[in-house]
């Protein structure tokens, strides 16, 4: 099973709380938009990704098991 990160650009307001939880996976760009650095993170990042999803105030992030 592998993990996939899905970002809803319309909902994301670039606050970067996801980045605080999982800096290897998310980074807010200079223009305030969010870059998903790794859309299919390795399993070691699972906990951090779950924390990022929970921390997002706009519910812009989802994790899919594929």
């Amino acid at each position: 099973m592998s993990l996939q990160v899905v970002l809803d650009q319309d909902k994301c307001s670039g606050l970067g709380l996801c980045e605080a939880e999982a800096p290897e996976i998310f980074e807010v760009r200079e223009d305030g938009s969010l870059a998903v650095l790794d859309e299919t993170p390795a399993d070691e990042h699972r906990m951090a990704c779950e924390a990022a999803v929970a921390a997002c105030p706009t519910e812009a992030l989802r994790l899919i098991e594929s």
Binding site: E19, A20, V28, E30
Partner: peptide
């Protein structure tokens, strides 16, 4: 400075 603030948050943490 949207790219920086969370890096400072980690420094504080």
């Amino acid at each position: 400075r949207p790219t920086q603030i969370m890096k400072y948050k980690r420094l504080i943490a």
